[in-house]
């Protein structure tokens, strides 16, 4: 089916996120307005106004009532999804990059970049029942090795936190103490994205070393490697099939130096287990920065450096065809 072209951002996209039911789509970009869309037809519901800088990531609560966004204006904001009202602002000394709600939204993790003399930090904040009682100070902040932390995720029943970083490492931290429990060097380049599988046993990472990898969430062992020949900026796992969606392409700064065909700006589908590419979907005219599967696996979105979000619904063939 022809994709819906969502024009709402004027800067490169950074992350796309469906809510649990999949009827809402949140997009954030390098402009200060995270945006909410209906995922069925791509209609814009509204924007969240209040940030003053690029928004590298967001997370939505399980009941779709709260949105948490991290911004390069050194703040993270908690929003009321429905009204677009900013419920609380967490202020930090450095630009924020990754955010994640814990399971049950009792806590949230926010990562900040190294800035001035300050190292990269991960902050765990406790979220109050009533936003009015919300405390600004994080419960615990812990220092991380050099490099930006692009994505974080709570695992093991909120006891540990996974963080992927610019130096190609994935690290596991103890949420209570901030102690690093495990680290694995899985990529040779900046890890841009990490998305968990629905059952939480594994996750997929996308890195500028031109590969995406499937990693065991328990042991952090690399299970599969998808070679893309281009920077991989984002990767998503299909909730219903053994398919991996990888978005990326030639670095935006180099696009003008070669012909457009060389860029490989397609959304590419790999078989999760055979590691083989079996389909691709053209459309963006810049690298793809963000990808996401709808929770029912019947549609997917890609967001590009070009500022567009493309919302694709699979044709019926996709469900009946045998690719292998």
């Amino acid at each position: 089916m022809r994709p819906y072209l969502l024009k709402g951002h004027e800067r490169p996209l950074t992350q796309l996120k469906f809510n649990r039911e999949g009827d809402l789509l949140f997009s954030c970009a390098k402009d200060p307005h995270p945006t909410l869309w209906y995922s069925s037809d791509g209609q814009r519901v509204g924007t969240y106004i209040g940030h003053n800088g690029a928004v590298p990531s967001c997370d939505v609560s399980l009941d779709s009532s709260r949105l948490l966004t991290a911004s390069q204006d050194s703040s993270a904001k908690l929003w009321d999804v429905e009204t677009g009202e900013c419920l609380h602002t967490f202020k930090f000394q450095a630009p924020c990059r990754a955010v994640a709600f814990s399971l049950g939204e009792q806590h949230a993790a926010i990562s900040t970049d190294a800035f001035m003399a300050q190292p990269s930090l991960i902050h765990i904040v406790k979220l109050a029942e009533d936003p009015a009682d919300q405390e600004s100070e994080p419960e615990i902040s812990f220092t991380c090795p050099k490099g930006r932390i692009s994505r974080v995720a709570f695992t093991d029943g909120n006891t540990t936190l996974l963080a992927v970083s610019e130096d190609g490492y994935v690290r596991r931290y103890d949420v209570e103490t901030g102690k690093m429990l495990q680290e694995e060097h899985i990529h040779e380049g900046y890890i841009q994205d990490m998305q968990m599988s629905t059952d939480g046993t594994h996750f997929v990472t996308a890195s500028l070393d031109k590969t995406a990898k499937l990693v065991d969430a328990q042991t952090l062992e690399v299970l599969k490697t998808y070679v893309t020949e281009r920077n991989a900026n984002s990767a998503a796992l299909s909730p219903i099939f053994d398919h991996v969606l990888i978005g990326g392409g030639q670095e935006a700064s180099q696009v003008t130096t070669t012909s457009s065909r060389a860029g490989r700006f397609e959304a590419r589908f790999f078989h999760k287990i055979y590691e083989e590419e079996f389909a691709s979907c053209r459309g963006h005219f810049g690298p793809i920065n963000a990808t996401a599967f709808h929770p029912d696996g019947r549609s997917f979105v890609t967001g590009g450096e070009d500022g567009y979000v493309r919302l694709h619904h699979f044709d019926n063939d996709y469900f009946s065809a045998r690719f292998f």
């Binding site: 399980l62 399971l103 093991d156 046993t201 696996g297």
Partner: peptide, 28 residues
């Protein structure tokens, strides 16, 4: 080999979310 771990995980999930968790979000 992950089955046991998934079940454990599911149990903690249930414990944390309580009645907010509805069974069977999407089935294929």
């Amino acid at each position: 080999s992950k089955r046991e771990w998934i079940e454990q995980n599911e149990a903690t999930r249930r414990a944390i979310l309580g009645d907010r968790l509805q069974e069977g979000e999407f089935t294929v």
